[in-house]
């Protein structure tokens, strides 16, 4: 085997120099941008691998040299670079082995073929990894973008709900010291909190002593809603005012009784008209015809 590969030893220096020169010559290649010293090292590694494998009768050194090359230029080695390296190496090596025995030339040709296969496989594997990484990054970016859109939509929805709540909880001063709050729509904990905050502020501002809360526009008034109203009423009482609950339908009353909730701490009246009349009484006022009519 030693005798068979004598031509490699004889041609080694010339092969390395020629391969390095041609690798560095091609414009746009990674070899050229890596510089002359890198091209020299790659050429020396490839020729040494050829010598070792021809001597051993295996492909191990060639495989390792090719893997090292792909790793060395991770992500930068293109198919054209790989093609340039393998075709140039093949041309130079087969020319150098022109005088070798036919079996030896065949062996070298097989080795070069294996080198192309290993290089192509590693190249495709590396591209595949790069594509997968890019696809994963793209998916993350898309998810982040969707999340941002959802956050923006949620913020807008929250803002609109707040506007609706504000608009559906008006507080109207109907007479000196008397406020009317007509509730329309669903009455939940968030709205109860909003009502309490606004009501306490309005009582202080209007110096009100009676607040009439009309729930005839609330579609569902269950024990939860009743509890919220009672709490609001307690807060109102702490400011020295009284809360009257009006608009309780027979159905609602039945439901509350059925649930066993006690509304006795609240003054309840059937209609807004009754509530207003009661409020005027509490203020020691009454509605009287205008004199002379």
């Amino acid at each position: 085997m030693q005798a068979q590969s004598e031509w490699i030893e004889r041609e080694r220096t010339g092969l390395v120099a020629a391969l390095a020169e041609r690798l560095g010559r091609r414009s746009g290649s990674v070899f050229r941008s890596a510089g002359a010293a890198a091209c020299e090292a790659i050429a020396a590694r490839m020729v040494a691998a050829l010598g070792a494998d021809v001597t051993s009768g295996k492909d191990t050194a060639g495989r390792e040299a090719m893997l090292a090359l792909v790793q060395q230029f991770a992500g930068k080695l293109g198919y054209a670079d790989l093609r340039h390296l393998t075709t140039t190496l093949r041309q130079l090596v087969l020319a150098a082995a022109a005088d070798a025995e036919p079996a030896e030339r065949q062996r070298v040709d097989d080795w070069l073929f294996q080198l192309v296969l290993v290089g192509s496989m590693r190249f495709v594997a590396q591209r595949e990894e790069a594509f997968q990484e890019q696809a994963a990054q793209l998916e993350v970016r898309q998810l982040e973008s969707q999340l941002e859109e959802l956050k923006a939509a949620f913020a807008e929805k929250t803002r609109l709900l707040d506007v609706i709540r504000q608009a559906s909880t008006p507080i109207a001063p109907v007479h000196e010291g008397i406020l009317v709050v007509p509730l329309v729509g669903l009455f939940d904990a968030q709205r109860a909190q909003l009502l309490t905050d606004r009501l306490l502020h309005a009582i202080g501002e209007a110096r009100a002593s009676v607040v009439i809360v009309d729930i005839s526009g609330v579609p569902l008034f269950d024990s939860d809603a009743a509890e919220l109203i009672v709490r609001t009423s307690q807060a109102v009482r702490l400011l020295g005012a009284q809360m009257l609950l009006v608009g309780l339908s027979p159905g609602m009353a039945g439901t509350i009784v059925g649930l066993g909730f006690d509304l006795s701490s609240l003054k309840t009246l059937s209609s807004l008209q009754d509530g207003l009349a009661h409020a005027l009484t509490l203020r020691k006022l009454r509605i009287a015809p205008v004199a002379g009519r």
């Binding site: 414009s27 746009g28 290649s29 990674v30 050229r32 941008s33 930068k76 293109g78 198919y79 054209a80 670079d81 093609r83």
Partner: peptide
């Protein structure tokens, strides 16, 4: 064809030329 952008800079990133390796 496989068109690969060669090393040595890209005009879109301020380079003076673009080299393409076409197989």
């Amino acid at each position: 064809a496989l068109v690969e952008h060669g090393a040595g800079g890209c005009m879109d990133e301020g380079g003076s030329s673009c080299t393409y390796l076409v197989s």
